[in-house]
């Protein structure tokens, strides 16, 4: 399922990211890649989300939330 469809607070596992290689690399440099465990902390306006990974918080837009495929941990 897509990250954009997930509920708040549930632990999630990233299965794949449907973006170009360069964009996936930048996301990986920021700590988001296939195999990463994350959690949605906040649903924001216009479909944006705040996700957590360890102690880190990241704000993402609706487009990225739609491109990330996740499964429940």
């Amino acid at each position: 399922m897509k990250l954009s469809e997930c509920k708040l607070g549930v632990a999630l596992h990233i299965e794949s990211i449907d973006l170009s290689v360069d964009h996936c690399r930048r996301l990986k440099e920021l700590g988001i890649s296939q195999g990463t465990d994350i959690r949605i902390c906040q649903n924001c306006v216009f479909g944006g989300k705040v996700i957590s990974k360890g102690t880190e918080l990241l704000g993402i837009d609706a487009k990225l939330a739609n491109a990330i495929e996740v499964s429940y941990v």
Binding site: Q42, C44, G54, T55
Partner: peptide, 25 residues
Amino acid sequence: GLHKLDGKLFTYWLDKILLNKFFGI
């Protein structure tokens, strides 16, 4: 062991106001 710091430093309540889907704007 940096992953062990999971979730201990967040200030969720402030984000719930500032980033709220409806009140954020």
